[in-house]
Design a protein around this nucleic acid. Structure first.
Lengths: 338, 338
DNA sequence: TTGAAAGCGCTAACAG
DNA sequence: CTGTTAGCGCTTTCAA
C-alpha cells in the first residue's frame, strides 16, 4: 500500500504539499505541482478515500434507499441516479429494503455507520423521525415520491393526481370506457391516495356516470394478476383496468390472457411508470410516464447542493407525468418506438 | 457525533476497554462489560465504520460489478447477493458498468479507493490483469459467469453448454422443431460460445438433420426484437427461436406478435435466465433457469471465506442449469405457478 | 483485567 | 509558497 507519505518522500516535499496538489487547493508553485503529479503517476498512487473521509468527517457516498428491485421501475431509477452521482464524483450506496421495515432500519443505521453524506429515500417505511435522525447526524436527505407523510426536508414528488387523471380521462373520453377497475397500491400510501383522487376527478369530468371498482394491490406483478383473476372468477364485468404501476398491469394483462379476454378490444389496460419493457409487452402497454431521468437528475443535484451548502433551505419539487398511449388501451396504439 | 471517547469517559474506563467490549475481544470483567454495554445503549453510541476500516485496513464492503441493470436478471441477482452479504455483516457497493469499459475502469479504481475487502465481478470488460491488480491491492475477487478468459481466481460458472443443450433438445425432441434460429450473445463471449457448443451438441444428438440459423444480439430486449424482425422481413422461415437470454426472447416474441406469427403454434421460443417476469409474458416464456439464488449465495460465501482466510486456495464452481418449460415452446405448457 | 499511547492515511490550521 | 503538526475515531500492542 502506497501512501501520501511515500509520495512526499519520493518527491522531496511534505505531505501537506502533496495533499494540496491532490485536491487542487492551489498555493503551490506550478513546477512543484507538475513534479508531484509526476511522482504520483510514477508510483501509481491512489489516495485512500477512507482516510480522507475520516479526516474530513464525510464521505463521497450517497445512500439510495429503494423499496424493491423486483419492480423494474426501480432498477431503471437506480441507474439514472448512479449515473448522475458518478458524474459529480459521488458514489452510490444502494440500499434495497425489500419493503421491509427491519431492512429499512438496518440500512438507516448502516448509512450512519458509513458516514454517507446524503441519502435519497424512496420508501413507505421511512417516517419523518427517521429523516430527522439522519439530518441530526449530518446526513442530508431528499425523498422521492411515495413519501406518505409530511416532513420539512427536500422532496421530489410526481403529480399522481394528474397522472391518474390523464390515464382515466383517456379511458373514458378516448376509449368510451364506462366500467373501470382501478387496481391501486397499498391503502395508506400517498401515491395511491393521490391517484385515487385523480381517478375521481376524471370521473367527475366525464359528465356522465361511469361504473367503477377499486381493489388494492402491493405493486407486485403477482398482485395485479391475482386481483384481476379474482374479479374475473367472481363474474365481475369491466371494460378497462387502470393499474397503479406497470408491474401490476403486466399481471392484470396476464390474467386477461389466461381467461381469453382480449386486450384491448374487450378490456383496455393502462399502467403507471412506463418501464422500458412496456413497449415489448403483448399488446404494448399504455402507461403514465414518471420521467425517471428527471427524477434522478433532480434528486442528485438537489442533494449535492444541500451537501455543499448546509445552510441552504430544503425545497419541494413536483414533476408532471405524461401519458404514453400504446396498444393495451387503444386499437390504434403506438408502435414499438413510442 | 458521539465517539468511543465519550463512552469511555461516561463509563469511567479507557477507550481500549470500550473497544474490547465492542468487538467481543474478551479479556474484560463481566461487570465491566455489562456496564459499558449499558453506557453504549444509554448514549446511543454507534461505532464509526470509517474509522474502524482505516484502523483495520479493510472495510466490510463487498463490491458487486454487474454489466447492466437493464436486463432483469441482474437486479434479481443483485438482490440475492445483497441479502446474503447483509446476513454476514457485509454491505454491497453496487457497481453498474452499463457494459462500458470506461465505467468498468472507473469502478475498479473506486473499489480500491473505498478499500472494499472483496469484489464479485460479472462483466465482459474485465480481464485477468484487472483481477490481478485488485488481488495485488488486497481485494479478493470472484467472477460470476460470463468470464470470457482464463484466470487463477475463484469463479462461478453455469454450465451453459448443458443449458443450451437442454433447451434445444427440448425443441427438437419434444416439439419436433427442425428449423431453429439461435439468437446468441456477443460473439467473443464465453457464455455465447458455450451455448453454441450446446446448441451443436443437441443437433448432433438429434439423429436427423435440423436447419439452423445463428444471429448475434447484445442481450438487450431491442436486439432480440430487431434480429427477429429482420429475419421475418427477409423471408427467412423458422419454426423456433432459442435466445441466449430472456430479454432477447421477449424482444423476439414481440416481433413475432407484430407480424402475426403465433407463438407457440407457428414458432416456439425458449429464453435463458428464467427472470421472474417470464411467467407473466404472453405466452409464458420457457427458459433455462440459472439458479440466481445458488449463484448469489455461493458467490458471497466463497468470497467471505477468501477474505477471512487469505491463504485459502481459490476454487472454481460450475452450476447446473434447469429447463423450465412454459407456453412459449409447447402447447401444453405450464401455468403461472411454474 | 485494564490503560496509555502509537498508528491507520489524510486534511487543515498555523507558522515560517 | 511550503512544512510541521495536531487531529479524525478506532484498534492494538505493550505495560502495568
Amino acid at each position: 500500500m502506497i501512501t501520501i507519505k511515500d509520495v512526499a518522500k519520493e518527491a522531496g516535499v511534505s505531505v501537506a504539499t502533496v495533499s494540496r496538489v491532490l485536491n487542487n487547493k492551489g498555493g503551490a508553485k506550478p513546477e512543484t505541482i507538475t513534479h508531484v503529479e509526476n511522482v504520483i503517476k510514477k508510483l501509481n498512487y491512489k489516495p485512500n478515500k477512507i482516510a480522507k473521509s475520516l479526516s474530513e468527517g464525510s464521505s463521497n457516498l450517497i445512500a439510495l434507499l429503494v423499496p424493491t428491485l423486483n419492480n423494474p421501475f426501480f432498477p431503471e431509477l437506480v441507474r439514472e441516479i448512479e449515473k448522475v452521482a458518478n458524474e459529480n464524483g459521488y458514489n452510490v450506496y444502494l440500499c434495497n429494503s425489500d419493503d421491509d421495515r427491519m431492512k429499512v432500519e438496518y440500512y438507516l443505521e448502516s448509512m450512519i455507520d458509513h458516514y454517507v453524506s446524503g441519502a435519497i429515500i424512496n420508501s413507505l417505511h421511512v417516517d419523518a423521525s427517521d429523516l430527522a435522525e439522519l439530518e441530526k447526524r449530518g446526513i442530508r436527505t431528499i425523498t422521492i415520491d411515495r413519501a406518505n407523510f409530511e416532513h420539512p426536508y427536500s422532496a421530489i414528488t410526481v403529480d399522481h393526481t394528474l397522472g391518474a387523471q390523464l390515464a382515466v380521462t383517456h379511458l373514458i373520453r378516448d376509449e368510451k370506457c364506462n366500467n373501470i377497475v382501478f387496481i391501486s397500491g397499498p391503502k395508506n400510501e400517498k401515491s395511491a391516495i393521490d391517484r385515487l383522487t385523480g381517478f375521481t376527478l376524471a370521473l367527475n369530468e366525464a359528465g356522465h356516470p361511469v361504473k367503477t371498482h377499486i381493489c388494492y394491490g402491493d405493486f407486485g406483478t403477482a398482485s395485479g394478476y391475482e386481483n384481476t383473476k379474482a374479479l374475473i372468477q367472481n363474474g365481475h364485468s369491466f371494460d378497462s383496468i387502470f393499474c397503479a404501476n406497470d408491474a401490476m398491469a403486466i399481471g392484470a394483462m396476464r390474467a386477461c390472457h389466461e381467461f381469453g379476454i382480449k386486450v384491448p378490444s374487450e378490456v383496455k389496460i393502462v399502467g403507471y411508470d412506463n418501464i422500458s419493457l412496456a413497449s415489448y409487452m403483448y399488446p404494448t402497454l399504455s402507461s403514465v410516464d414518471q420521467c425517471k431521468e428527471d427524477i434522478g437528475r433532480l434528486a442528485v443535484n438537489e442533494l449535492i447542493q444541500l451537501i455543499k451548502n448546509p445552510k441552504n433551505k430544503q425545497k419541494q419539487y413536483e414533476l408532471e407525468p405524461k401519458l404514453v398511449i400504446r396498444n393495451s388501451s387503444t386499437i390504434n396504439g403506438g408502435s414499438i418506438n413510442e
